[in-house]
Amino acid sequence: MNRSRALPAAVSFAAAAALLLTGCGGGDKGSGNDKIAGADGGGAKKTAAPSKPAPSKAPGIDRPVMKFPSDVSLVFDKASLPNADQAAALGDAENFVRAVIYGVTKHDVDNSAYKFYSEFQSPAQQYAKEQIQKNIDAGLTATGVSRYTGAKVQMVKGTKSAVVTFCSNDSKFYSKEIKSAKVHKTEESLSDYAFWQVGMMPSTATKGLWRASEIKVQGEAAQCRG
């Protein structure tokens, strides 16, 4: 058992999301051997973005500030996308991930950041809250480097929504006890890799902002290792 992950690859995914992701070819395969297009990050250059929100071309968005501890770093591959909607959906999907981990580091289950980047009372918002609460209950925070690669964005035909997929590598990302500062390190294993599917919706109130509505995280994702 791998105890290094600060954020367990738990699944919080409504039936509607399963249909949405299956419709765009991103459904849960149920097998770590399935090839995910782009999961190797080919053609993408890596860029570190440990604490700042993803750049947004949309002006006038009052985004929450997420200042992480110095020992926490989130690194996202830079992806080249064909249009502004895809870029915005990806940027705010990344911001949603940041916001969940930020809530863990702040030990704040009601932190405004994850609420800002997720639809109200959506499965994605519930997922964020549950992950933060689990770490609070366990007296844990996060430390180390979490890497995200192979991002893809698929616009869902006939809707204004998008599905963002990417892999995460938490082989150097660990749980840390808040009281003792003890870090729970383990050897690298398949448990460190996950495949994410995040359903994103454009905000109806804030132009240029996208929010997570549905999420599925496949743990022990063999296609993300290597």
Score class of each variant (00 low, 15 high):
93 A>V: 09
77 D>V: 10
78 K>R: 10
117 Y>L: 06
108 D>S: 13
110 D>R: 09
108 D>R: 01
116 F>Y: 14
111 N>P: 00
88 A>H: 01
97 V>H: 03
97 V>K: 06
116 F>W: 10
118 S>C: 10
95 N>Y: 05
99 A>V: 09
93 A>G: 14
84 A>N: 09
103 G>N: 08
113 A>Q: 08
109 V>C: 04
117 Y>D: 00
108 D>T: 13
115 K>G: 13
118 S>T: 06
102 Y>T: 02
104 V>W: 00
82 P>D: 14
117 Y>K: 07
114 Y>E: 12
114 Y>W: 11
110 D>I: 11
83 N>H: 11
109 V>D: 12
109 V>G: 12
65 V>H: 07
109 V>Y: 00
87 A>C: 07
75 V>E: 11
109 V>Q: 12
85 D>T: 12
113 A>C: 11
91 G>I: 03
106 K>R: 14
75 V>K: 03
85 D>F: 00
101 I>K: 01
84 A>M: 10
70 S>H: 05
79 A>L: 09
111 N>K: 01
71 D>T: 04
94 E>N: 13
113 A>G: 11
76 F>V: 00
67 K>P: 06
73 S>P: 03
103 G>K: 07
85 D>W: 00
77 D>A: 14
71 D>C: 03
96 F>I: 13
83 N>I: 06
104 V>L: 02
115 K>Q: 15
83 N>D: 15
70 S>L: 12
69 P>Q: 02
112 S>T: 14
110 D>F: 07
108 D>A: 14
109 V>L: 09
74 L>W: 02
77 D>M: 13
87 A>K: 12
103 G>W: 02
91 G>H: 04
94 E>Q: 15
69 P>M: 06
97 V>S: 08
89 A>F: 02
85 D>V: 01
116 F>S: 11
72 V>D: 01
76 F>I: 04
70 S>M: 06
74 L>T: 06
95 N>H: 02
78 K>M: 07
83 N>P: 02
78 K>F: 02
65 V>L: 13
109 V>W: 04
68 F>D: 06
69 P>H: 04
93 A>D: 13
70 S>K: 13
101 I>P: 05
84 A>D: 14
66 M>R: 09
73 S>D: 03
102 Y>F: 15
68 F>H: 02
99 A>C: 11
68 F>Y: 05
68 F>E: 14
101 I>L: 08
106 K>Q: 15
73 S>H: 09
90 L>E: 00
110 D>Q: 13
102 Y>M: 08
111 N>E: 14
116 F>D: 12
96 F>W: 12
108 D>K: 01
103 G>I: 10
115 K>Y: 05
94 E>K: 14
67 K>S: 15
118 S>L: 10
91 G>N: 03
112 S>Y: 02
81 L>Y: 04
82 P>H: 06
95 N>W: 01
106 K>L: 14
83 N>G: 02
112 S>R: 11
83 N>K: 10
98 R>S: 04
85 D>A: 13
113 A>Y: 00
71 D>Y: 02
88 A>L: 10
93 A>Q: 09
71 D>Q: 00
79 A>S: 08
95 N>K: 08
113 A>E: 12
114 Y>M: 09
99 A>I: 12
108 D>M: 09
65 V>F: 04
86 Q>W: 01
